[in-house]
Every structure is written in structure tokens, then in C-alpha cells.
Design a protein around this nucleic acid. Structure first.
Lengths: 232, 232
DNA sequence: CGTAATCTTGATCTGATTCAAATGTCGTGG
DNA sequence: CCACGACATTTGAATCAGATCAAGATTACG
């Protein structure tokens, strides 16, 4: 009943060379070269909430997560979108400091805290790897802070699009970006309202810098101008 | 000529049990229980700039640093204020991703990257320690992103004051907070203009929640109300 | 198809910025 | 010791970017 077998999951996102030997609901070696339980989360599901006991680290295999912080009255800041191959939940300290939710259907591999703690002593390289992941997360956080604190609506949306572009367009500047998240998520990421995000998309369309195939599929026509607009 | 001997430095901030045996310009064991070169930086001096080769990690012994990100046109986001006992410059990746500058006169201990890399293999605990520092930094970054993206001017300034309070008031709620940074720094931290920050201080004064001894010394009179105002 | 979301557009309002000036603070030299 | 000047902070008035409120338009889905 609960365990469903993947067939749609593999099409969603582009996991790079990870799927070679995936036996879905069993144990497997991931980026950490460690055994970890693989599971599938439907869109909207919460992996963990801010404040929950931080009992492990997740690696995203496919799909995309959003990382959120909430104020008591419900206002939300999305502090990151997590694509395949990234780790989240590194916390050192008893509790997660943010919430993680699936945007698309997501495959994740879970590494138990207890196992990691034990293994970190034996394999220094593992700790190094985690430190690297944390440093990367920190770098992205700094970029986002710069955006939230300094940039105006146009700059924010342009920056967001460029981020999404190089997050998925490891290939060519294929010029066609898929946005798995809805406008509300985008708004809460860049610190604007849905309406302003929408208006800004329209502005970019009118100036021929982008085109919208659908609401979730952006064609970038003028990379240079988009780059200027982002003020990086 | 260049090497000055401390006498004013020790009064500045409150290093907790760190100064027991400090022979200023020589090598010493710090929080990492490692040898590292100690040096003194005058207010305003840059430790390193975003983009510089990241050749090591600094530990603040006394005083306070600011961490900045800049846009090409000069707009600035301060992503953190670094008090004594904290590490900065963990970067894994060849370059620092932010700039670090002294706000007050600062004593720092420097750990060379090469030395750390070597030692991390021998002493797993060291890597763990660095991971812990990174995790803490990340936690603070998340709080700041929430503030920048969601909060209004009053909430931002209230949050800022509470942060400063528990950053230094390890003791009692002594109610007297010293702000080593100027209004411009505060503004660039909370994502407002100097004028708005000043107006907000005035607002807090008028409502008797705080009082200003001087521009850099805040007395907190009503912790509960300040806490509500911060919307945490 | 029709109904409910999501997304877009429009009109108005408001909190924060901008520009400008006054006040306050501190160090320096007369 | 006090006057002066440089700089930081505060205050005021006008403006504006983005939020809010309110409909439409589009899309997804049963």
C-alpha cells in the first residue's frame, strides 16, 4: 500500500550518473559512499520541520525540495531550492533549523545521524565531504542575503532566473528553463509578493529578454541583458 | 615600528578565558588547540576580500568583525557581525566568498589552510569542530534571511537589538548593550537605510522600550515588548 | 465541460527611500 | 578651556517601489 514503485520518478529531473544501480526501496551507496535508506516523497510532503530532532542528513537523488523558515504569523522565507545531488539537514546541534518540503516528487537517501557520527571518526574524508557541503550551502546563503537586502524586484527575479538556469543547465545555454516551483514559492524566495513576481515576469517578457512557454517554462532570449539586470 | 605592544587592546571586548597566556605576536594554541599566528588589526582594516585566495581561517580573539558582500555598484549587505571566539573564512573552494573587515580594533589568530588540510586528516575532531562552526554560521544566516525577506523596519531593528543582546549579554540581562558598529553598518545588516534605522530607534525610545545612553549604547527597558516587536 | 486553482492585470495605498537640513559628538589646535 | 570643523546621527518633507485589495484570464483536472 504505502510502498509505490517508481516509473514516473525517473523522468522528472536530471540526475547525473546516479541512477546506474538503483534498487528503489533498499539500502544503497550514495554520494557519501555509505549505506542509506532510499525513499520517495510526493509533492508537498514535509521531510522535516524546523525544531524537529535532527536525526540525520538527506541526499536528494531526484526532484526538488524547498527549504523554509516561518514566522509565528505564517510569513515564510524560502532560503533555498535543493536540486538532485545535494545534501541537506547538516545541523550539529540537536534540532533542524529549517523545514524541508518536496516541491516535485522527490527521491531521497537518508543517512542516520548516529551512523554518520560513528563513521566520521573512522573516515576523515567523510567529515571533509560534509564540511564541503556546508561551505557550499553557506556560499549560496550569502548570495541570497545579498539579493534580499540590496536588490530591487527586477534584479531579484533576474538573479533568480540565472540561478535556476545554471542549477539545471549544466549543458548548453539551452535557453529553456523549467521552474518546478509555483509563483508563491518564487515570491517567498526572493522576498516579494506573488503579484510583483508576476508583473516582473511580464516586464521581462515585454522587453524580449525572456518568453514564457508556460507559466513554469521560461525561454531565455537575451542572456547578456538578463545578466545586467541581475546586477551581479 | 610596525609591531606595537598591547595595552589598550585588552580592555576593548571581553574574551572569556582566552588571554591567560598571550604573547602577542608569537604562535599560540587557540580554540582549535593548534598553533596559529596572532595579530592585531586596527578598526577599518580588511582581513580579506571576497574573491581573494582563501588561504586560511581566522579566529577572533577580541573585538568585532563585519562580514560583507558587495554589488558592483557599491551596494553592500553585511551578512554578519563576528564577535570573539568565532571562526571565519571557512570556505573549501579556492576563494573567500565574502569580505571581512575590523569594526573595532581586533585581535585574530590565523590558521593556514595548508596546515589545516594536513591536520584534518590526522585529527578527525578538528574537522568536526570546523563543521560545527560552519553549521552555526549557517544557522545564523538562515535567521538573517528570514529577517531580510519577511520583516518590516520595526521587526528588523528589534531583532537586531535582541541578537546583539544575547551575543554579548552572556551574563545577566544587564540591559545595557554596546553597539560597536555605526548606523550605516546596522542599516546594511538589516536591509534598510540609515535614516530608517535612526527613525526606528527613535520610535523605540518614544515607546519606552529602549533608551540611548549614547548612540552606541542601548539600554533595554522592556524585554518582553522588544521580543514581541521582533516577531520571533 | 465546469469548477477550482494558479497566474496575471489593474487601481490604490503605504512604508520605506530619497533628498535636504538641523542637531549632536568628538578630536584638534588656538 | 573653549572654539572650530569634520563627521555621525537625527529629523523633516516629498516621492516612489512594492504591497494590498479586487477582478479577470488561464490552466489544470475530475
Amino acid at each position: 500500500m504505502h510502498t509505490q514503485f517508481a516509473s514516473t520518478a525517473t523522468e522528472r529531473a536530471v540526475p547525473r550518473g546516479f541512477f546506474a544501480s538503483l534498487a528503489n526501496e533498499s539500502e544503497n551507496l550514495g554520494a557519501l559512499a555509505l549505506p542509506g535508506a532510499v525513499s520517495k516523497k510526493p509533492p508537498g510532503e514535509t521531510l522535516f520541520r524546523e525544531g524537529d530532532a535532527a536525526d540525520g542528513v538527506y541526499e536528494v537523488i531526484s526532484g526538488m525540495l524547498r527549504i523554509c523558515k516561518l514566522l509565528p504569523d505564517g510569513r515564510r522565507q524560502i532560503t533555498g531550492f535543493v536540486p538532485a545531488e545535494r545534501l541537506i539537514g547538516i545541523s550539529l546541534g540537536g534540532a533542524y533549523s529549517y523545514t524541508a518540503e518536496a516541491i516535485t516528487e522527490v527521491m531521497v537517501r537518508f543517512y542516520r545521524r548516529s551512523a554518520l557520527d560513528r563513521l566520521m571518526l573512522e573516515r576523515p574524508q567523510l567529515t571533509r565531504h560534509l564540511l564541503g557541503a556546508a561551505a557550499q550551502e553557506l556560499h549560496m546563503a550569502h548570495e541570497l542575503m545579498l539579493m534580499l537586502g540590496c536588490k530591487d524586484a527586477l534584479e531579484k527575479v533576474a538573479s533568480f532566473l540565472l540561478l535556476m538556469a545554471d542549477q539545471q543547465g549544466g549543458e548548453v545555454d539551452a535557453a529553456e528553463i523549467h521552474l518546478p516551483m509555483d509563483r508563491h514559492d518564487i515570491a517567498d524566495y526572493v522576498g516579494l509578493t506573488v503579484e510583483t513576481v508576476s508583473r516582473t515576469f511580464t516586464r521581462l517578457k515585454r522587453s524580449k529578454v525572456i518568453a514564457l512557454r508556460t507559466a513554469n517554462c521560461v525561454e531565455i532570449h537575451d542572456w547578456d541583458r538578463l545578466d545586467e539586470m541581475a546586477s551581479r
